[in-house]
Design a protein around this nucleic acid. Structure first.
Lengths: 344, 344
DNA sequence: TTTAGCACTCTCGCCTCGAGAGTGCTAAAA
DNA sequence: TTTTAGCACTCTCGAGGCGAGAGTGCTAAA
């Protein structure tokens, strides 16, 4: 808690930097040589001992160099890493890819995941954006075979939900279209709750359909409704700390099991604002699977209207500066795209 | 090519069986003991030598036991594995899960992937079914902000495609609805080509929209349009042959890179018939990434109308009997569901 | 407060060595 | 002719030993 001296900050920064590059514990002598420090290795050793006592460094075993602890990374990320921007050329390349791709939400999300994975050489995840409050915009009903009916609903913001259901009696396409038009006109911009008031105005079939509509709207409001796009999972396997596959399995399992992933996103994302980037280091005591990992997350979209989450999962030894800038930049680009094309 | 003797078949079968269970090379003496063979280890050794000459077995190094070669697995799968059915209880459990889940294609596909992964303890993949010939059923146009228009199209079979595009001039929702209704009425059950004939009947805006419709239909006919559901990738990491992560990376990379995966499916699936299960062993000389793996694939759906692919990717040392039955059974269940609910 | 010097510790790669498992071959038995 | 017993040989694998190298902590001097 006590403020670190400038020299301690420098040494901690250098150790983090060196270790993220070499993967190895870093020793006092080697460090003095490499960075031409204007002090002796003994001095560095003393400072290292102090930082170790403070809990920011540790030794894998006696008489090895030091590596940062979780706490060390945390202080590095919160205080020491300088906010950098991605180089202009990189930014242009990324923007370019988005603007020349097919104008299609799914493509964008896939692309975002791919860019994050490549830039960070780690695993990436991107959730589809969804309305924080589902508002009805348009309903379409299409008869398929027999009693089966395909319901296609569009929400304000362009989210599309579809569902197949059946009615007790067969019904013609004309009748369905009439009902769909009626509901579309009545329900403009309504939330799921507001639809309750409309039940009296509808015939029995219409009521039944309205219930399905309400169900779908409710589902849409739950945190993560749509797809989650993952990429770069194999990057994780390339990291030396995951050479023994068991460790890697743990981390990838988290990405694979939607329920775990949703839980993670739900718990962390609520606190983060658009534009802000959140860094989770070592599972923060809650997620055992992530003991060796860090996650860098950001929200994108239009706050309060249509938002999604994107981020990167990699080893705790991660180039935080670069990763954070990348995540922030991709989030910004995606926010612009989503806002421009989907919000009305 | 020469027919194997009964005894050779027995020995090959036992070696495959034993090796899939232990992961270890299997030796003559151990085998005689374990299976109480009515012959001496020397006899077994002679037969093993013969099978090795034929190319069905190999030794990881001199004076180790034998393991099957790719060719050995191939002959095992094509001739020796007996076609078994899943036990009744397993089948019931699986069916049950499908029928009690939400009646929703996406859920089913996800579930299928999950069941395949769990049953086979390997990675699984399931592609969304798609029409082999895209036939128009229904069109909806929704104005969003400014010139942006959301196009929602339903194909015969229930496949939904959506696309955002813009027109040079702003246009009202009423006008859009009129156009959509007109196209819907004119184009019932038409293929993309047939739509060409309709251009003269439409005003300029209608023509422009029809072009987008045709583009979407063309896209839908390309082999794999929709999502691919993957599951159980971490199972692969648990296999001892993938302990050094490099090997595992190769295999997982294939699953992660959509383009590779689509290529794989495109090349293999064409030859396989519904109900038939296809087994690809060791990449078949074409896919280097799969040198250590096998894939068990089947198509599901309604032949010629709406079909998809599902399968399992695991180590070459795989319990083929069980995996094949599982893939076949899940494909059958999914075929029924798809046929019942989506085909009209 | 910083630095030089020094004894000590721990890992890592390399080597050796013996146990264990399995083979191929030969000659005898069925 | 086919099967089997016996035997010498080969190869892996794990344990143990050893030395080099890197790093530390401590003490005493600058």
């Amino acid at each position: 808690m006590n403020e670190l001296t400038e020299r301690q900050k420098l040494i901690l920064t250098l150790i983090v930097h060196e270790h993220t590059h070499t993967t190895q514990p870093v020793g006092s002598k080697a460090m003095v040589n490499k960075y031409n420090l204007r002090m002796s290795s003994a001095t560095v050793r003393n400072e290292m001992a102090a930082l170790t006592d403070l809990g920011y460094l540790r030794q894998p075993h006696t008489s090895a160099g030091r590596i940062p602890t979780e706490e060390g990374y945390r202080i590095f990320v919160s205080k020491l890493v300088q906010r950098t921007n991605l180089p202009m050329t990189t930014r242009r390349t990324i923007s370019h890819q988005f603007y020349q791709s097919r104008q299609d939400l799914e493509q964008w999300l896939r692309l975002a995941a791919s860019i994050l994975a490549n830039q960070s050489q780690a695993a990436s995840l991107v959730t589809a954006p969804h309305s924080e409050k589902a508002l009805f915009k348009h309903l379409e009903l299409i008869a398929t075979r027999g009693h089966q009916i395909l319901l296609v609903m569009v929400l304000v913001g362009g989210e599309i939900r579809q569902q197949i259901f059946s009615l007790p009696e067969p019904i013609s396409q004309e009748q369905l279209s009439t009902i769909a038009t009626k509901i579309t006109n009545l329900c403009q911009n309504c939330s799921a709750d507001q639809l309750d008031a409309l039940h009296p105005q509808l015939d029995p079939v219409g009521k039944e359909i309205l219930v399905v509509v309400q169900e779908e709207m409710a589902l849409s409001e739950k945190l993560i409704t749509g797809d989650i796009y993952l990429d770069g999972m194999t990057n994780i396997l390339a990291e030396p700390e995951f050479a023994e596959s068991e460790e890697a399995r743990q981390a990838l399992k988290l990405l694979e099991e939607r329920s775990l992933l949703e839980d993670l996103l739900a718990r962390t994302i609520m606190t983060s604002t658009i534009g802000g980037v959140q860094v989770l280091i070592g599972g923060e005591g809650t997620w055992d699977e992530l003991r060796q990992c860090s996650i860098v997350l950001a929200r994108y979209g239009s706050p309060g209207v249509l938002t999604g989450t994107l981020g990167v999962l990699g080893p705790m030894r991660m180039p935080y500066g670069h990763t954070i800038s990348t995540v922030r930049f991709v989030a910004d680009v995606l926010s612009d795209l989503v806002t421009e094309t989907l919000i009305n």
